[in-house]
Amino acid sequence: HNLTITQGKLFFHYNPKLCLSEIHKMEEVSGTKGRQERNDIALKTNGDQASCENELLKFSYIRTSFDKILLRWEPYWPPDFRDLLGFMLFYKEAPYQNVTEFDGQDACGSNSWTVVDIDPPLRSNDPKSQNHPGWLMRGLKPWTQYAIFVKTLVTFSDERRTYGAKSDIIYVQTDATNPSVPLDPISVSNSSSQIILKWKPPSDPNGNITHYLVFWERQAEDSELFELDYCLKGLKLPSRTWSPPFESEDSQKHNQSEYEDSAGECCSCPKTDSQILKELEESSFRKTFEDYLHNVVFVPRKTSSGTGAEDPRPSRKRRSLGDVGNVTVAVPTVAAFPNTSSTSVPTSPEEHRPFEKVVNKESLVISGLRHFTGYRIELQACNQDTPEERCSVAAYVSARTMPEAKADDIVGPVTHEIFENNVVHLMWQEPKEPNGLIVLYEVSYRRYGDEELHLCVSRKHFALERGCRLRGLSPGNYSVRIRATSLAGNGSWTEPTYFYVTDYLDVPSNIA
């Protein structure tokens, strides 16, 4: 807008934040220059609390790290170098490059900038070799853009010569660093050979998330399962459950009422301010606690030095998902009996873990797994792929695949051998790939016309006998059925096997 004052003059007093240069501009645009008398524009009460600059400061050096910015700028000295009290560095987070010096300023003089007072450097006698002032900004957020400017702080001049310097606002972004852990990993099994893994992005990506790394490792069953005799009275049979499938998407929606109208769909109840505040506090606490764990609990591995020492970490090797089922080394339970199943799973520490690289999504279907087997899954978020990966501390989750139908069934015939004193040795093959492992066998036998009897055969007993022995049988026709019990439950009964026990007292003698 054009402003013209045809008559009258300007009068400025007691404006401590208004620089004289701005008042002189007002004289020019209003056409009143030359009308004012000496005392109409006070030299001592206008701009006496402001830094009124008329020179431009330029930054000469900028260096960044993930949490620091090192700045240096060209030296500046007023005509009387004693008038320079120091520099004021202003900075704040700036997602967009549209910041002005006066953003967030209120009537009390406060604003949204963080201000650092910096002492002037030592003055050199040689004007050509003056030290460049600077400042190291610490405690910054990774991968965050900051708006920065600097200006001088000078003393009051009796001659009211307006001098000083100020830089333009520059924008500097800190470097990326390792992201925080992925949030809320959930693993479920939808079949006997697959596990579905879902997660949420890290709360602090500290860069642009480029991919996720998912490692999985087959877990050995508890050692007590191999040692305890679950045929003993009072000892509860062990059981394991597989990871249940995901709930429906509708039930997972946030901010939804727990109660549904019987007449149909209901609208979600909005969260109160107290609920939102509580969630923010919980989120802040979780982030602080995660940072504490990362800094205190997890110790970084030592990389190899120039002395030739090897990095103890196993090298990563990509495998196809079809090879995942046989990740671990199978060892027989008892070496003397080769027909026992290889369900003991000690994992070799030198073995390469299978892994998958996930790009542009937060889910993965891990296939080719062994049925009813526990897996430990390790999830890392990465925001750099080359020249070397920059990934987060791992988040861990466990899951067990679903049982395989008929995996616990005894394959092959049940054979028998009759000894003296009416002892019958029953023999059968253990299931080759049971659900988890076989903890015991149930032997059901009966003599024709009598009630059915049951015998429990422990895992250890089966390994020693290759089956079991029935003792003290009365003469007669017998039928026997056997079924295995694994961590997933009972298998199917075998087809009945028949044998006849004679009275050993009636056996004919070869003595003449």
Rank of each mutant, 00 (worst) to 15 (best):
S203F: 07
P205F: 14
N206F: 11
N206L: 04
I209A: 06
Y212L: 02
L213Q: 14
F215G: 14
W216P: 06
R218T: 12
A220S: 12
D222T: 05
S223V: 10
E224T: 06
E224W: 12
E224N: 15
L228M: 09
L228W: 11
L228S: 10
D229N: 14
K233N: 14
L235K: 06
L237W: 14
P238N: 10
R240Q: 04
T241V: 15
W242M: 04
P245H: 10
P245D: 11
P245L: 12
P245I: 14
E247V: 13
E247M: 10
S248A: 11
E249L: 08
Q252Y: 12
H254M: 10
Q256E: 04
Y259K: 12
D261R: 15
S262N: 06
A263I: 13
C266W: 14
C267Q: 10
S268K: 12
C269Y: 07
C269M: 02
C269L: 08
P270W: 06
I276M: 07
K278L: 04
L280P: 15
E281S: 08
E282N: 02
E282G: 14
S284A: 12
R286V: 11
R286D: 14
K287E: 14
T288A: 09
E290S: 10
Y292N: 10
Y292T: 07
L293R: 12
H294S: 03
H294T: 02
N295T: 08
V297M: 07
F298H: 14
V299I: 08
P300K: 14
P300M: 15
R301E: 05
S304V: 08
S305Y: 09
S305K: 14
A309Q: 11
R313S: 10
R316V: 04
K317A: 10
R318I: 13
R319M: 10
S320T: 09
V324L: 08
N326W: 02
V329S: 09
A336N: 12
F337A: 02
P338M: 11
N339Y: 10
S341C: 09
S341L: 11
V345A: 09
T347M: 14
S348W: 10
E350Q: 06
R353V: 12
P354Y: 15
F355D: 02
K357S: 14
K361D: 04
E362K: 07
V365K: 02
S367R: 10
S367I: 10
L369G: 02
H371E: 08
G374A: 04
R376M: 02
L379G: 00
D385E: 12
P387W: 12
E388T: 08
C391V: 08
V393M: 08
Y396D: 01
Y396F: 14
Y396H: 15
Y396I: 02
Y396L: 09
V397Y: 10
S398W: 04
M402N: 13
P403S: 07
E404T: 04
K406T: 12
K406H: 08
I410S: 07
V411C: 11
H416L: 08
I418T: 12
I418D: 01
E420F: 15
E420P: 11
N421H: 06
N421S: 11
L426I: 00
Q429F: 11
P434K: 05
N435R: 01
Y441I: 01
E442S: 06
Y445K: 01
D450H: 13
L453I: 01
H454F: 00
H454E: 13
L455F: 11
L455S: 12
V457N: 02
S458E: 11
S458I: 10
R459C: 15
K460G: 05
A463K: 07
A463R: 10
R466H: 12
R466V: 04
G467N: 02
G467A: 04
G467Q: 05
C468R: 03
R471C: 11
Y478T: 01
S479F: 05
V480R: 01
V480A: 05
R481N: 06
I482L: 08
R483P: 00
R483T: 01
R483H: 04
S486N: 01
A488M: 10
W493T: 01
E495H: 15
V501F: 09
V501L: 06
T502V: 12
Y504W: 09
D506R: 14
V507T: 14
P508R: 15
S509W: 07
S509Y: 13
S509R: 07
